[in-house]
């Protein structure tokens, strides 16, 4: 963290990137941190009866609802990416690849603010829901992995700036397959990581905080892969429902 900044990335650049990414994050978050703190404080939870009713819904119906919510959130991630300095300078092929491969990772990072660690519940469709609410999905392993990740990330107490820079760094992963110019992506990601390190250093965060954030990456990747596996299986069993999912959801996760 205390390494001098490389010559090709002066402090002014770092601060400019930080401002651009944080501004983009704040402009493109569905709920502000204050909104979520207020919602958590109000603590509206699904009653046992509401939970039972939701658990009795069909898998198709619950998949449909979740796909709708994820699709809505993806649009915010697209706008987040567009506002990151340098993203729109990438070729369109790489913009599409980074969004398809990384949008769910950004959502998983953002979701930790919607997680109530005291009650182990996640804000979903207006109230806080336990993992059991989603039983009808038939994806208990996926749902519990999402809740575990949210619990772990919420424990890190990321500031808006740290969350913005971390999610931008995840989105700008140069190791995504089929990238045309992975080196250009790598340079962009390196600057965002430097900005994150600088932000952590300036805020006096514990040295291991960055390591703890990076240690979540494998879990995020496995959740994204598990989501695709579950979607593939669901499509085999309910092809017509899968075909009726929102077009953007099918476009992002379809192939």
């Amino acid at each position: 963290l205390l390494e001098p900044l490389p010559d090709d990335c002066p402090l002014m650049d770092i601060e400019r990137i930080t401002q651009s990414v944080v501004k983009s994050h704040l402009e493109t978050s569905q709920y502000s941190s204050d909104d979520l703190k207020r919602l958590t404080y109000n603590g509206m939870q699904y009653s046992p009866e509401e939970t039972r009713n939701f658990q009795c819904e069909s898998a198709e119906s619950v998949w449909q609802q979740c796909a709708h919510h994820i699709t809505n959130s993806i649009q915010y991630v697209v706008e987040f990416a567009k506002r990151i300095t340098g993203f729109m300078d990438l070729c369109q092929n790489d913009q599409i690849i980074l969004l398809k491969a990384g949008c769910l990772e950004v959502l998983l990072i953002r979701m930790c603010r919607a997680f109530n660690a005291t009650t182990n519940t996640m804000f979903f469709d207006g109230k806080f829901a336990s993992a059991q609410l989603f039983k009808a999905l038939g994806c208990d392993d996926l749902v519990s992995a999402v809740f575990d990740l949210a619990k772990g990330l919420s424990r890190l107490q990321l500031t808006d700036e740290e969350m913005a820079l971390f999610s931008a760094a995840c989105l700008l992963s140069p190791d995504r397959p089929w990238l045309t110019d992975s080196q250009k992506v790598q340079k962009l990601q390196a600057k965002v990581y430097l900005a994150l390190q600088h932000s952590l250093h300036m805020s006096g965060a514990a040295d291991e905080k960055l390591d703890q954030m990076v240690s979540k990456l494998p879990m995020m990747k496995s959740i994204c892969n598990l989501h695709i596996d579950k979607l593939e299986f669901f499509r085999l069993v309910h092809p017509e429902t899968a075909y009726s999912f929102p077009p953007l959801y099918r476009e992002v996760f379809g192939s």
């Binding site: 402009e27 493109t28 649009q75 915010y76 697209v78 706008e79 567009k82 729109m88 369109q92 913009q95 599409i96 969004l99 398809k100 077009p247 953007l248 476009e251 992002v252 192939s255």
Partner: peptide
């Protein structure tokens, strides 16, 4: 382009935060 026309369109659109 055909396979990802929605993403292409979203990337081209200039959406203000208010519209978002």
């Amino acid at each position: 382009k055909e396979k990802h026309k929605i993403l292409h369109r979203l990337l081209q659109n200039s959406t203000s935060p208010v519209e978002l």
